[in-house]
Design a protein around this nucleic acid. Structure first.
Length: 262
DNA sequence: ATGGTGGCCCGGCCA
């Protein structure tokens, strides 16, 4: 099972690059965030042409999450079973090849004194409560997406530059730890214990070329999957303009290879 | 230097 996650920053703008990447890397499942599409505008046919079935949850110009799969897609579920989350279009779940997969787009938070930051923390608490109520940590579950949290200082190019900022604050890291405490593992450190590998770089100021990035796109697995995970790679090349000239998202793709027969 | 870049969709918001 090859499982990938990518914040595409508009699927309309990114579709050629996403399709090109899918053909080259052939994941079984790709989770996407920030499609910025309404459901009826989701390009399901373009994915179907490559052998992928899809599920999308979006209502227009903000947010929007999707899962595409070539190992089946059952019991799609939008939101965290509450009106507020359904409106935000930040979660979609589906069973693909026997794994319950969630594609999540955690709120950004903007700044520590913002009401959006309080919303981010509350949203993360609801995600934990959802897992408690609706999922079994002894079963195969993968929660993938843009968490807008760098789990450790080694996940940030310069921790000093982020003092007092979102993405690295203790309350956010505690909220993520609560989610992991349910029974999920961020499998990245198994393969890259020293960190220094990032999934997002600001578009501004040449951040990508300077190495000014953060690892905020995560693959979280329950133990039955984490123990079978054979690699976790971040495809830095997908953050570059493609040979065909397609422009990149500000995030790149995270890929997990798991010994799991769909 | 209160900028910078990119996407939404066309003036300002959001990341």
């Amino acid at each position: 099972m090859r499982l990938a996650t990518w914040n595409v920053n508009s699927l309309t703008a990114r579709l050629p690059l996403v399709l090109e990447w899918l053909e080259a890397h052939a994941p079984d499942v790709l989770c996407m965030q920030e499609t910025k599409l309404a459901d009826d505008a989701f390009p399901a046919a373009a994915f179907r042409a490559l052998g992928y079935v899809s599920a999308h949850h979006g209502d227009g110009r903000w947010n929007g999450v999707a899962i595409v799969s070539k190992v089946g897609l059952q019991a799609p579920e939008c939101g965290l079973a509450s009106e507020e989350d359904a409106h935000g279009c930040r979660v979609i779940g589906a069973t693909c090849g026997g794994i319950r997969v969630y594609s999540v787009y955690v709120p950004n938070g903007r700044s520590l004194d913002s009401e959006h930051y309080a919303y981010k923390l509350a949203w993360l608490a609801r995600l934990r409560a959802y897992l408690d109520e609706r999922c079994d940590p002894s079963s195969p579950v993968a929660v993938c997406g843009d968490f807008n949290i760098a789990p450790a200082d080694t996940d940030v190019w310069d921790p000093a530059a982020f003092e007092g900022m979102t993405h690295v604050s203790e309350p956010e890291r505690r909220a993520l730890a609560e989610i992991l405490g349910w029974g999920l593992e961020d499998v990245f450190p198994r393969f890259h214990p020293d960190g220094g590998v990032y999934s997002w770089w600001d578009y501004r100021g040449g951040s990508f070329h300077k190495g000014y990035g953060m690892r905020i796109d995560l693959v979280l697995l329950t133990q039955v999957l984490a123990s079978r995970c054979r690699s976790l790679e971040i495809d830095r090349d997908a953050r570059k303009k493609s040979p065909a000239g397609h422009k990149p998202s500000d995030h790149t793709v995270v890929i997990a290879d798991i010994d799991w027969e769909a």
